[in-house]
Design a protein around this nucleic acid. Sequence first.
RNA 1: GUGGUUGUAGCUCAGCUGGUUAGAGCAUCAGAUUGUGGUUCUGAGGGUCGCCGGUUCGAACCCGGUCAUCCACCCCA
Length: 455
Amino acid sequence: MSKPSLPAGTRDFGPDVVRKRHYILDTIRETFQRYGYQPLETPAFENLETLTGKYGEEGDKLIFKILNNGLDNPEKESKVRAGFEKVLQGKSSPDLTERALKYDLTIPFARYVAMNHGQLTFPFKRYQIQPVWRADRPQKGRYREFYQCDADVVGSRSLLYESELACLYHEVLTALGLTGYQLQVNHRSLLLALAEWCGDRDWLVPITVAIDKLDKIGLDKVKLELESNRLPAEAIEKILTYLAIEGSPASVLDQLEKLLGHLPEGQKGLSDLRTWMAYIKDQPLTYRIDPTLARGLNYYTGMIFEVKAPASVSMGSIGGGGRYDDLTGLFGVPDVPGVGISFGVDRIYDVMETLNLFPTDIADPPRLLFFNLGITESQVTFPLLQTLRSKGIAADLYPEAVKLDKQFKYAEKRGIPYVAILGASEIASGTIQLKNLQTGTQQTLTHAEFLNAKL
RNA sequence: GUGGUUGUAGCUCAGCUGGUUAGAGCAUCAGAUUGUGGUUCUGAGGGUCGCCGGUUCGAACCCGGUCAUCCACCCCA
């Protein structure tokens, strides 16, 4: 019998951790509901076909695939072997795997909308809080199983939603004490316009992949990467002027206008951003327009968001989102535009932990512990315990009549503020001892007094 | 997927250029204290030194492999 262990990148959560996670999740859920989003849950796994091709080439590699059952069936042997050959060539085969763990919440949501669009009332606003899985190598802030909290709305092109989602970010993160978070926004149309200005829309992907790394690898290396992608020097010059854009949102827009305003795509991006800014201009949130923000997921078509952890913590992105014009089109239902955001709970947890942002009174131990002084005594105690519980007071009874010393220490360790002692002498007088462990005060009460005592 | 780091008691870690019986603090349990905790004191239990192999008279220590971990890259929440 070998020692038990966990698969890499997964974790158990003890009581203290679960309480803190609930604190985050409850904050997010409450805000989602207050903004009018409805709950949705989808299965842990989907048909592999539903997921593949939606997250880009790298994304596909990170999907956890589930091996089919019954591969040892002799009748399937030749198919299975043929499927295995495909796998050896880096392709997946439905003869070997036809299901996979979900990789995010957006694609399953799009699948749900595509399957149920006839029944849904649009605009449909849903939130979803569930684990997702990625076959990445674990490291700091990166787990193989982690929770996402998504809010999406489909069926409307209104920038009202981009606006309220940005406010939602602000509300949740400030409620959690993450006041130093940074919201960055950009618009895919601007990136497209940039590619077009450079000479070819097909350069969109290599350009965005390269410039997205600007703050990480620096200007020189971005330049190198663009050159290695065989972009002409003229195009690279244009990109460098684009990358030089920075400043206040208004100033960034002005500079973008000069560079890309002559292109229809550029105008689209600029006008969306202006509309968005007008919606939120009196809201408390701060943001930065970052023309280099690209975001990997290739289904975004409009505004994109990224939330970075406070600069004092090296954690990178704790949330992201954006508009996608045609996600359900992938599932055969065209013309259902959508926009959504996501919170990375596990990273938010890590950031809050390093910043010490969790409230200290998050634990909710029982209010009272009945000591156990013997079978007879505890049988008198038990009804009192149940009465307290029925009144909504969390209480416990120690299971064995061990030394009081030990029962005191148990109460203390669990953070239980009151203990009640009912032994032979209390039975004789019909009373009970109630002791406050913090103050050390103890009083003798009748059962009726005890049940009405303020705990 | 690529590169590196670290694996010693439940936890955090010592352990000298390889040397006899592997240590500390915390935690646990017992006693001092049979119905009154927190402090203190005394004592006890707990180890295949991640695993497998190699070098050596001798390995926790050196070498190889493997697994796990953390970190970085790729990518991402």
